[in-house]
Simulated scan of single mutants.
Amino acid sequence: MASPPTPQTSSASLPSSVFTLPHTAQLEALYTIIRDKNTSRGDFLFYSDRIIRLLVEEGLNHLPVIPKTVETPTGATYEGVGFEGKICGVSILRAGEAMEAGLREVCRSVRIGKILIQRDEETALPKLFYAKLPQDIAKRYVLLLDPMLATGGSAMKAVEVIMEHGVPEDRIIFINLISSPEGLRTFCTRFPALKVITGWIDQGLNEKAYIIPGLGDFGERRYCS
């Protein structure tokens, strides 16, 4: 008899703006593979990409739609819906770039911007080093991409940058694979109108602010052999 998926942080203790993937046995199997330190780089790429695809699909479920009527090949009309506005992706470098392919697979010709944020050694605060965003980003819904949400510092700085370019808070959806409860609460307290789509909420942070049990450095495992 199959055992149920590992329990996570209770949804009742999390902000209402946080949404997780349905925690099926298949999803837990995928996470078990990418968490395993002995998983090969090839398998890490393949199975993390599968999870990213699921996350992007879930993120699209939270975009607003409007009524749309089309004519089918039979000559009949169909009362359906269409997305209310255009979207774009913004990845937080470098690990967030790993999620761009998953977004492109489900959103044809989607525009993608990039933000580089690193820790300032003098202040220990996240500092913006580079930002390249679509010129019309203020008119789009933004899917912010970063695999891990630990303390939330980099993600909050990225949201600040996006909002400074004219995007309302409630038009941003943050998508990530693994979050810490502490990071989620800090992030959602700062930006309560912004939605977060996460694949798994872990136990918490250790004394070094690493997510536990986590999966290590996503970027290192993704890009280094």
Score class of each variant (00 low, 15 high):
L14V: 08
A158P: 09
P192Q: 11
A2T: 12
P4T: 10
V106L: 14
C224S: 13
L133Y: 06
Q8L: 06
S109L: 10
L133F: 10
F191W: 15
K114C: 04
G82Q: 14
Q135A: 13
V159I: 15
I172N: 08
I112Q: 02
I66V: 15
R41C: 08
I112C: 00
I115A: 07
I212G: 01
D217F: 09
T24R: 02
L143G: 04
T186C: 07
M148Y: 02
I175L: 14
S16K: 15
L93K: 02
T24E: 12
K114E: 02
Q118P: 00
Q135H: 11
K68V: 07
R94L: 00
L30P: 05
E84C: 08
K208P: 01
L116E: 07
T24I: 00
I178V: 15
E121H: 07
C88G: 04
E28M: 07
S109A: 12
G166S: 07
L143P: 00
K195Y: 07
C88F: 04
R104N: 08
V159R: 07
W200I: 03
Y210P: 01
F46W: 09
E79A: 13
S13W: 09
S13H: 11
K208I: 01
R222P: 00
V106R: 14
S179K: 10
L128E: 15
L215W: 08
R119K: 14
L21T: 05
E71G: 03
K157F: 02
E97K: 06
Q26A: 12
G85A: 14
G42T: 11
L184H: 04
I173P: 03
Y31W: 12
M148K: 01
F187M: 11
E160P: 05
R41L: 02
G96K: 04
M148W: 04
Y130S: 00
L116V: 06
Y141F: 15
D120V: 02
E207Q: 13
E164G: 05
S17V: 06
L103T: 01
Y210Q: 07
Y47N: 12
N38H: 14
E220F: 10
V196Y: 03
M1W: 09
Y223S: 06
G216D: 04
Y130D: 04
K114S: 03
K68Q: 13
R94H: 05
E57T: 09
L194P: 09
E28D: 15
S10L: 11
